[in-house]
C-alpha cells in the first residue's frame, strides 16, 4: 500500500483535436478531503472518469489506491466508492434493499451486510424509513444514504460528483459531517462542488481551467495567493480566465 491515495502525473485526455484534460499532475494523501473545482466544461468529469477507471487516459500516468489506471482498472474499481448527484440509488427499492444490493455488489458477506446495514441505518436515523422506497425520501436523505452506501465496503477512496446539488443548507452540513467522519476513518474523499463555502471545508483544493489545473493549495493559502476574502473570489478570478465554453 502506498502512502498516497492518488498520484497523477501529466494525465491527459484528448477527444480528436480537443484536449479535455491537459497534463494535470497532483497527489492526494490517504485520508485527505480533496476538493476538485472547475467551471462547467473545464474537464472535471473527464478527469474523474479516468481516475475511477471508467476511461483510458490518452497519455500520462496515474495511480489510484496504488493501482495503475491503464492496467489495473478492475482493481481500482474494487477499491473506490463513487457517488454522483444524478445516479445514486434505486428509487423503487427500499432503503434496506439498496444497502443489501450495493453491499452485495462489493462482495460483503451476509453477516457484514447485516451489521453494516443496521449500523448505517441507525447512524442516519432511518430506522422508521428502513422499509420505505428510496424514491419517497427527501433529496437530502437520499444523498446522505447514497454516500453511506458508497463507502459501505470501506474503500480507500470515495469520489463524490456534486453530491450536495440542490440540497437544503442544513442537510448539506449534515452531509459534510458524514464526509468528515469518513475522512476520519481513513477514507480519502475526492469531491466536486458548485458551492464555494463547501470548498472551504476541504483540506486542499484544485481548480481546473480549460483542462489544466491552474491552482492547487489549501483554501487559506489560495485566498492569500489571490488576495481574496472567500473561495468564491478565488474561483471567480481563476474561472474568468477560461477561454473555452463547451461541456
Amino acid at each position: 500500500m502506498s502512502e498516497k491515495a492518488i498520484v497523477c502525473k501529466d494525465l491527459t485526455k484528448r477527444f480528436g483535436d480537443f484536449v479535455a484534460v491537459n497534463h494535470i499532475s497532483f497527489d492526494v494523501d490517504q485520508g485527505e478531503i480533496f476538493g476538485f473545482l472547475g467551471a462547467n466544461g473545464a474537464g472535471k468529469t473527464t478527469a474523474m472518469r479516468m481516475l475511477c477507471g471508467l476511461s483510458y487516459p490518452t497519455s500520462g500516468e496515474a495511480a489510484v489506491a496504488g493501482y495503475n489506471v491503464f492496467k489495473q482498472q478492475e482493481e481500482i474499481k474494487r477499491n473506490i466508492g463513487y457517488m454522483s448527484q444524478k445516479f445514486s440509488l434505486y428509487e423503487t427499492l427500499t432503503v434496506k434493499e439498496n444497502i443489501r444490493f450495493y453491499g452485495g455488489v462489493y462482495g460483503l458477506s451476509d453477516k457484514q451486510l447485516k451489521e453494516k446495514g443496521d449500523e448505517l441505518i441507525t447512524k442516519l436515523g432511518l430506522e422508521k424509513e428502513a422499509k420505505m422506497m428510496v424514491g419517497s425520501l427527501p433529496l437530502g436523505w437520499k444523498q446522505k444514504l447514497a454516500f453511506s452506501v458508497a463507502i459501505i465496503h470501506q474503500p480507500r477512496i470515495v469520489f463524490l460528483d456534486e453530491p450536495t446539488g440542490g440540497v437544503d443548507p442544513v442537510t448539506r452540513r449534515q452531509f459534510w459531517d458524514l464526509i468528515y467522519d469518513a475522512a476520519g476513518s481513513g477514507i480519502t474523499v475526492f469531491v466536486t462542488t458548485h458551492y464555494m463555502d463547501e470548498a472551504e471545508y476541504c483540506n486542499r483544493i484544485s481548480v481546473m481551467v480549460d483542462g489544466r489545473i491552474d491552482a492547487l493549495d489549501t483554501p487559506a493559502n489560495l485566498k492569500k495567493q489571490f488576495d481574496a476574502t472567500s473561495m468564491n473570489e478565488v474561483f471567480y478570478a481563476l474561472a474568468r480566465t477560461a477561454k473555452r465554453s463547451a461541456d
Binding site: 467551471a39 462547467n40 456534486e162 446539488g165 440542490g166 458548485h194 474561483f235 471567480y236 474561472a239 477560461a242
Partner: peptide
Amino acid sequence: DEPTTGVDAVSRK
C-alpha cells in the same frame, strides 16, 4: 425555474 442549477459560478453571475 432554477435557471442557474448545475451552472458554474461564472455563468451564474
